[in-house]
Nucleic acid binder design. Structure first.
Lengths: 206, 206
DNA sequence: ACCTGAACACCGTTCAAGT
DNA sequence: ACCTGAACACCGTTCAAGT
């Protein structure tokens, strides 16, 4: 029951960067970014708020760690490394998207800073190699990867924004209801993520 | 020199929602979101901070107004309304993108809430009509518009994030430099926005 | 090495009161 | 109608001090 790995749990937890970041992410997941503060995080960890500053240079440093914690969720499941670049990139984009929309309140934390995950870099590199092997220049391949990432983040933010502001988009603003096609989502276009992703991959292939 | 429009400037400005939002946007443009606070905004407007609460329900209400102020910059220049949908949507995306990257610190404010601009809605509606006229279903057309918007926002956030954290992406994190293709932007792929946009439009056309 | 406690300079928001 | 002033309940961060 107590496997002897010489680590930092012995009754009193002993703070760790990753441990702190994980708790912070959970707080944001549950109550949104506005429910988070250094002081509340300290309380959650049964520690004086100022203790956090031994582990992190400050709030921003902690937020970067939170973003990395988030993106590190990608990679547990396998990716089709042997498949053509289009399948590999599609699969990676889907995984990243699913991780992000699992944390609607934290998407903004991830999206507003440049995060790099070891796994994401590996996937990107391999995809670029595959693309180069099939005729793209390295620059084109890299642009493709960046464009796809931007698309995924944009879609995740969409979900995040509508999820946070209360499920139906823009109910509370009193804009004239504009008797036209998309009015208030009357059409119900369904989720656009997959169609858009496929379109982008298709367009990149051409 | 003083054209007699019966409006609200007579020595003492007289606060307006749009006036306040404009000043707030300028503050964010100049100093980033962290340089903004209700109290500082009050000081900037030579007014007690609490005065703002007569015009806005609170901070969040003000931020929504800021986002609308931002997106309302789109529309000054003309759009090719008579052109095929692909040209219309391309032009609109470019305009939105250019407005956004002109306000790197404010992109996050725009991206993290569902904003609707009169102009954007009109452009979207017309594009959807054109797409339907050339064989798309209304649902497909709407998904296309939403996907494009997500892509534009994602790209703008990219620019924003790297611009804010100091021009070169991720210099300060001590990740192993990974002797591979994209290492630290060694390749220099150039801006991916246009290529990615064109790819998406191409993919949607197919 | 790691955490506490007190202190400093801030916040957003409310509400009675002024004009 | 529009703004002020004071008050309340918070913030992030620093720094000496403890263990």
């Amino acid at each position: 029951m107590a496997p002897r790995k010489r680590s930092n749990n012995s009754g009193k937890p002993g703070l760790t960067r990753t441990g702190i970041a994980t708790t912070a992410l959970r707080m944001i997941d549950e109550g949104g970014t506005s429910a988070f503060s250094m002081r509340r995080l300290g309380a959650e960890l049964n520690v004086d708020p100022s203790a956090l500053y031994w582990h992190f240079r400050g709030r921003e440093d902690l937020f970067e760690a939170i973003a990395e914690t988030l993106v590190d969720e990608v990679g547990a499941a396998g990716l089709p490394w042997a498949a053509p670049w289009s399948d590999l990139l599609t699969a990676y984009c889907i995984q990243l998207y699913e991780v992000l929309i699992r944390h609607p309140h934290a998407v903004i934390v991830f999206a507003s800073r440049p995060v790099r995950s070891e796994f994401g870099v590996r996937a990107a590199n391999h995809a670029i190699e595959l693309m180069v092997a099939s005729g793209f220049t390295a620059g084109q391949a890299m642009q493709a990867v960046q464009a796809l990432r931007a698309y995924v983040v944009g879609c995740a933010l969409d979900v995040s924004a509508t999820a946070i502001t209360g499920l139906q988009p823009r109910q509370r603003s009193a804009r004239p209801p504009a008797d036209n096609l998309l009015a208030q989502g009357v059409i119900d276009a369904g989720d656009h993520f997959r169609p858009g992703l496929d379109a982008m991959i298709r367009g990149l292939s051409a």
